[in-house]
Design a protein around this nucleic acid. Structure first.
Length: 428
RNA sequence: GUGAUCGUAGCUCAACGGUAGAGUCCCAGCUUGUGGUGCUGGUUGUUGCGGGUUCGAAUCCCGUCGAUCACCCCA
């Protein structure tokens, strides 16, 4: 039996790796373009860090083990706890607010299904040390930009926006005990998919009802004062049209304290593409009260996003074009006469030193074969080194035009040709 | 962790009780100094794995592993 990948893990063959790099590059550019700086934490953390944030049940969803030194450790299922730890540890070293982002692998010991694997890459964007709704708006703007950069539009995705404070108010009006808030939010979170009768039953056990909850949801729209500041901020940027106020969004875990939002696709019924919100108490919790900083952030995974890109023609086309630009060779050196291999290597090195992506056949090959390799590598030009050396032939592989050039004029001529074809690309 | 469906060549699939086939890809040649098309030829499977029923199993049954979907969870 040949070895296979571990369940829920993936191989990244060159095509897959190119897509992944494309996604990372776009994320990185989006975050940097919004003033965020990149950080990274360790993939392995103390299991207690996650236990403290999320409770004991979380351990079932962790890749956890005991080290040879008897430490309980886990592959991180998310980076927010690491971020909170890092931010608390050095908060005096940085002026506030911190605008930090990170891209890296995370691990969850769950059964895999569409859009969910055991190893995935996540993009995390957080603002720490700013309680103003301006930070929430900035975050949502960054999330929107991070999706638009893939060619996705408001017809492809929307941001569902809510605020936990709405439900805090509802609970006090409905007389639901504060200590049952988590339980109540769980019911709201699952309401969309669960059977109405079951939801109603659970809500009645909590002292309210499905009717009351639905009436409350219907009473909240985008004019609600809790959204006013965010709305103004996003509307000023022309981004409010991406947002749909939806009180039904509460997000799973208990630590969110204010704004919560989710990006979801509008056409393919995929799971949420991104999600986030405000978690003002987490830094304090994880630093045992040493440091108290308000914070908000969102995360986006590569798996669902990758699927959405594949399902969206415009986005897929952008990927193909990026790959053509980034995965292609500039020049392929064809060794037409083995007696000139020595000279061909000199030419090759000269091209590489000049910064072009250049390749050549490692072993003697027929010309036809060499051209096939050149084409397979998507080379733009071939430089043929043969019996007529020091005269060379430059061939444009797309147009099949070819021209002779003396060896000492190769670099200059190629530079002209590249400049001309760049220009052509711009017009096209 | 629970339930359902599915596993045939590298890939997409056919054969549905009578000893496995097509397309594509790949390789070679036509074409020993010129690549996208064309033509010719060629490699590859213990039908996921293990067991059972049967004269005979890719096909039916059980188990197992893997995939997909739903539940759980979604940080």
């Amino acid at each position: 039996m040949p070895f296979q990948t571990i369940k829920g893990f993936r191989d990244f063959f060159p095509e897959d790796c190119a897509l992944r790099n494309y996604i990372f590059e776009r994320w990185r550019t989006s975050a940097a373009g919004h003033g965020f700086v990149e950080y990274e934490g360790p993939a392995l953390e103390s299991t207690d860090l996650f236990r403290k944030k999320s409770g004991d049940e979380i351990v079932h969803q962790l890749f956890c083990f005991t080290t040879k030194g008897d430490e309980e450790v886990s592959l991180r299922p998310e980076v927010t706890p690491s971020l909170a730890r890092m931010a608390a540890a050095r908060q005096r070293h940085y002026s506030k607010p911190l605008k930090w982002f990170q891209i890296g692998p995370c691990y969850r010991y769950e059964r895999q299904q569409r859009g969910r694997l055991r190893e995935f890459h996540q993009y995390n964007v957080d603002i720490i040390g700013e309680a103003s709704p301006a930070a929430d708006a900035e975050l949502i703007a960054t999330a929107i930009a991070s999706l638009r950069t893939f060619g996705l539009t408001k017809d492809d995705f929307a941001i569902r926006l809510s605020d936990r404070q709405l439900w805090t108010q509802f609970q006090s009006q409905a007389g639901i005990a504060v200590e049952r808030a988590g339980e109540f939010l769980q019911v709201i979170d699952k309401m969309e998919r669960a059977a109405p009768e079951a939801t109603d039953e659970k809500l009645k056990a909590l002292g309210t009802s499905l009717d009351a909850v639905q009436a409350f949801i219907a009473s909240v729209n985008e004019n609600h004062p809790v959204f006013a500041a965010i709305r103004n901020s996003l509307a000023a940027r022309g981004l409010w049209e991406f947002v749909k106020v939806d009180p039904g969004i509460v997000r799973g875990l208990a630590y969110y304290t204010g704004v919560v939002f989710e990006a979801f696709d509008l056409k393919h019924g995929l799971r949420a593409i991104a999600g986030g919100g405000r978690y003002d108490n987490l830094v304090s919790l994880l630093s045992d009260g040493d440091t108290d900083m308000p914070a908000c952030g969102f995360a986006m995974g590569d798996v669902v996003l990758g699927e959405l890109i594949k399902e969206t023609p415009v986005a897929q086309k952008a990927v193909d074009e990026w790959m053509k630009r980034n995965g292609a060779l500039d020049v392929f050196v064809v060794v037409a006469d083995e007696a000139r291999r020595h000279e061909a290597l000199g030419i090759l090195q000269q091209l590489r030193d000049a910064g072009w992506r250049a390749d050549y056949p490692l072993t003697p090959q027929k010309m036809g074969k060499q051209f096939q390799h050149a084409e397979g590598a998507k080379a733009r030009f071939a430089v043929i080194v043969g019996t007529e050396f020091p005269t060379l032939v430059i061939k444009n592989l797309a147009t099949r035009d070819q021209m002779e050039v003396p060896a000492d004029g190769l670099r200059a001529r190629l530079a002209e040709l590249f400049a001309a074809s760049e220009y052509k690309n711009l017009i096209a």
